[in-house]
Structures are given as C-alpha cells and as structure tokens.
C-alpha cells in the first residue's frame, strides 16, 4: 500500500510500484535543512532500499546551493537510484540542467515535462526493476 510523508517543502509518496513520487510544494524555498529533512523522510519511507524517484518541481523555483549539493550528494544516493525531474517552466529547465551538469548527481538524472514519459524512462533504465534495489552500494 502506498505510504505518504509530508515535510515543510515536499509531499513524498512511495507507490506500490516502488516508485517514490515527490511533489515540491508551491513556492517553497529549499534550504539545506529542508534537503536534510526531505532525504531523511525518503529514507524513512524506503526503509533503506534505493528506489527511483519522480521529482515534481513544477511548483518551485528557489533552491539554495547547499541544498542542491546535498540533493545530488551521497546521502540522497543512498535512498534513490534514479531521478526523473518534472519541469514546466524555463526556470525549472535551468534548475534541472544546473543540477544535472554542474552538481553531477551520482545516479541517472533526467528532465521531463510529463509524468508518463518519466515513468517510461525509469523503466527503460531498469531503475524500477522490481523497485527494490537493496541499497548495497
């Protein structure tokens, strides 16, 4: 059964298919403490497994440098094995490209404008395979 957790800036739902759907709350500005809280919430939902994530950032624009680094660092890599970021604006595209090309997340990362394409990609790269990467890495 799908489980959901709320933090100050995100709503996180781990679906039955093993995909974590993360919605960033509108206009929420992410600080490092938000990033730490969100990664901790993700880990609580996945219970140590590494799962693919669909990150819906269509409601936000602001994220601090420290938060960007944390999201694309080893702590988050312990929780997610791939990230499909949903964007709907030029600002989202710039943010996504920055995360991808400057912060270099240690897991597959790609930008999408719709959820269906994101899910297809996660399946194609094998991130959703059983949805239960045991997180040995």
């Amino acid at each position: 059964m799908a489980r959901t957790l709320e933090t100050r800036t995100e709503t996180l739902t781990l679906g039955d298919d093993g995909v974590m759907f993360c919605t960033v709350k509108p206009t929420a500005e992410h600080t490092l403490s938000d990033a730490v809280e969100n990664v901790r919430a993700s880990a609580e939902l996945t219970r140590g497994r590494r799962v693919p994530m669909i990150l819906d950032t269509r409601g936000t624009q602001q994220i601090s440098r420290e938060a960007r680094i944390y999201y694309t660092g080893p702590e988050n890599a312990k929780v997610i094995n791939a990230c499909a970021m949903l964007i709907s604006s030029s600002a989202g595209k710039i943010l996504g490209n920055f995360l991808m090309r400057v912060n270099h997340p240690p897991f597959p990362f790609r930008l999408f404008s719709d959820e269906a394409s994101a899910r297809v990609w996660l399946k194609e790269i094998g991130a959703t395979r059983s949805g239960h990467d045991e997180g040995s890495r």
Partner: peptide, 23 residues
C-alpha cells in the same frame, strides 16, 4: 531578485544567473 508573480522567462534568467554567480 526572483519575483514569484513575475514573468517566467525573466525569473528563469534571474535564477540561472544567481546559481551561476554562486558556483
């Protein structure tokens, strides 16, 4: 300054420039 109520393209430029300056 990023103004949430403003034009998306201008905000995108602002966000991109701010991140670039930080890095």
């Amino acid at each position: 300054t990023v103004d949430e109520g403003q034009d998306d393209a201008i905000n995108a430029l602002a966000i991109g420039l701010n991140m670039m300056c930080e890095e």
